[in-house]
């Protein structure tokens, strides 16, 4: 499982790196970026799901 950000949809709402700083970071404009390869370890599945469910721009997806 991995998390993906659609950079075209991201506007820097800041929810993903607030909820799951283990999986997401921000760039110098405040847009969300995926940390590393975005792979979600079992203990972070819930946080990944919440990051997806809280993005107002629907910019985050989870790929199995």
């Amino acid at each position: 499982m991995k998390v993906v950000i659609n950079a075209d949809a991201c506007t820097g709402q800041g929810r993903c790196f607030g909820i799951a700083p283990e999986l997401f970071d921000f760039d110098d404009l405040g847009n969300g970026v995926v940390k590393g390869d975005g792979k979600v370890t079992p203990e972070l599945v819930e946080k990944a799901r919440l990051a997806e469910a809280n993005c107002p721009e629907h910019a985050i997806s989870i790929e199995e």
């Binding site: 919440l50 469910a53 107002p56 629907h58």
Partner: peptide, 11 residues
């Protein structure tokens, strides 16, 4: 926990 609010606008 699930709160996709738009208080800061969209787009």
């Amino acid at each position: 926990r699930e709160n996709r609010h738009v208080a800061f606008g969209l787009g």
